[in-house]
Design a protein around this nucleic acid. Sequence first.
DNA 1: CACCACCCCTGGACGC
DNA 2: TGCGTCCAGGGGTGGT
Length: 315
Amino acid sequence: MTGLSAQFTCSSGAGLGSRMPELPEVECVRRSVEDRVLGAQIRAATVHRRDVVCRHDEPRGGWSRRGKAPKPTRYARIPRHELGVGATINAVHRRGKQLAIELDRAGALLVHLGMTGQLMTVAERQRIPQTDHVHITWRLADRRGRLVFRDPRRFGGVWLYPSMQALVHERWDELGEDALTIAPETLYNAFQKTARPVKAALLDQQRLAGVGNIYADECLFQARIHPEQTTNTLTRNDVDNLVSALTRILHHAIEAGGSTIRDYADSLGTPGSAQHAHAVYGRGGEPCRVCGGTLAHATVAQRTTVWCPVCQPNP
DNA sequence: CACCACCCCTGGACGC
DNA sequence: TGCGTCCAGGGGTGGT
């Protein structure tokens, strides 16, 4: 792999068809971006698509209001300082699948990668590898290069807050505990209060932040729990096993540099090391690697769900 | 309040 | 080769 592509190895959120940004991918992006932009001053910012940027007190443009996208001219122009121009990057935080770039001068940028978002750092004399679907570019002072937000499907976006405190109060306080650090007792107590399918509860970011479709299926398989079992019928032991599987899988994925969907070789240059990381995700109809039975698949909570009917019986 | 269906978007896979 | 169709996914919104 060349030095140029290595620059994008970990800061890529989701190459199309390669990596979907769930918690481990977002954490990898956080670490990589923080490494490269900490202490850098933002010299300029260019918004190429106004509707992926949202000021903290304005409604999200485009799709949030049922197909009635406001015309671009309806957007107020964003003052440069709200985009961070003139400020210095103090930290990059993560909660669930969201990133926050904390600035001095009290501002903060919330970055949501959605399905296909990327937050990339590009060195001073490097070219941006894919310039289509680049929506925001921040130019850093002192030849620190650029920070680029790219998102072909535009499920992601960037929200601007006047302070890190405002961001936390308006956004992160609404999220559940982070999936990397949740205590089994917390999840068990939340599960006792509801009769939803456990798969739906795992995907509910207000209950547990950071779990998406891939890791929900994977941790249910590891914990031998049927995705449609209702949460209030899970025993404390079940939830202990679930949290243990979840944190184990997430940590492992972070160490591996994020999850792998198809072309691991393409995004990391080390073919083969993680193709077999997913035991069930994307394997409906294929044999279970534990018992050899055929993996079942169905739609649960509006998401394709794969499980082993033998290893994960529904009591 | 709790839960769930629908919808936003694009590109890759696949069939013909 | 090209065209059409289906599918993937997070999460906001509005309906039940």
